[in-house]
């Protein structure tokens, strides 16, 4: 079984981004970039499935600018076997990404595409579901446990107030949630070895896919800042404020 793992290059989760003072977007120039944390979890799970013998090959894919190559090298250092870089503009929309991935799925013919549930930059939480829709494959989103049993994927999913298990025919799409696993480190020896693993580069424009953006960003603003706090005199006043002003109880 081959597993395709799309990974996205995003602003590192330790960095607090700031809105540009002209309100046109978020300042990303010169910030540390890393693999999207949910994608790391997906890579880890795919590599574990291969190590357990449930999968034979793990192919990492990234779609974006040339520097996304570094993200793919990280995936290779974590244990992916080879990588494909599709060059496009920075951070295409999930719809465009799903269309590109569909082309790659048709070419690579994996039985599982394992994605992170969302990217921590645009927080769309959409690409996995959209790829499943375009391919007509079943989807197991927000996975906290994945097992391959008798040619099906048993996926335990995080839902509101608990979890549920679904059984999917293969091929299928799975998206990783936080509790699925704790990804391994890309160790220094493995980073050195990853330099020798194959990495293929494709031009997004050559894939015959419409990449036109459907959303335009009108403006980006900082969230309203915290109001200054107040000191209340009594328990009754506190309860009243929580109920009627803050509306949290």
């Amino acid at each position: 079984m081959k597993i395709l793992v799309p990974v996205k290059r995003v602003v590192d989760y330790n960095i607090k981004v700031r809105v540009k003072s002209d309100g046109t977007g978020v300042e990303t120039a010169g910030l540390k970039m890393s693999m999207n944390p949910f994608d790391e979890i997906a890579v880890e799970e795919a590599v574990r499935l291969r190590e357990k013998g449930a999968a034979t090959e793990v192919v990492a894919v990234s779609i974006g600018v040339q520097q996304a190559q570094d993200t793919l090298r990280t995936a290779l250092a974590m244990g992916a076997d080879r990588a494909i870089l599709v060059l496009t503009e920075e951070s295409p929309e999930p719809l465009a990404v799903a269309k590109i991935l569909k082309v790659l799925v048709e070419r690579e013919k994996p039985e599982l595409a394992f994605l992170g549930k969302q990217a921590i930059d645009d927080d769309m939480n959409a690409t996995g579901q959209m790829l499943a829709g375009l391919l007509g494959w079943p989807q197991g989103t927000f996975a906290s446990k994945v097992e391959i049993v008798d040619g099906r994927a048993e996926v335990t999913r995080e839902i509101d107030g608990g979890s549920e298990t679904v059984s999917l025919t293969l091929p299928a799409i799975v998206t990783a949630d936080l509790r699925l696993n704790e990804p391994r480190y890309a160790s220094l020896p493995n980073i050195m070895k990853a330099k020798k693993k194959p990495l293929e580069t494709l031009q997004g424009a050559d894939l015959g896919v419409d990449l036109t953006r459907r959303l335009t960003t009108v403006s980006v603003a900082e969230p309203p800042s915290r109001k200054a706090g107040v000191t209340v005199k009594s328990v009754a006043e506190l309860v009243e404020k929580l109920r009627n002003e803050a509306k949290v109880i």
Binding site: P183, Y185, S187
Partner: peptide
């Protein structure tokens, strides 16, 4: 070494230094 726990034990993601 990476993945040493606070108590100095090898954690699940322990990776020795190089």
């Amino acid at each position: 070494d990476m993945g040493i726990t606070r108590d100095g034990e090898h954690g699940p993601n322990y990776a020795p230094g190089m």
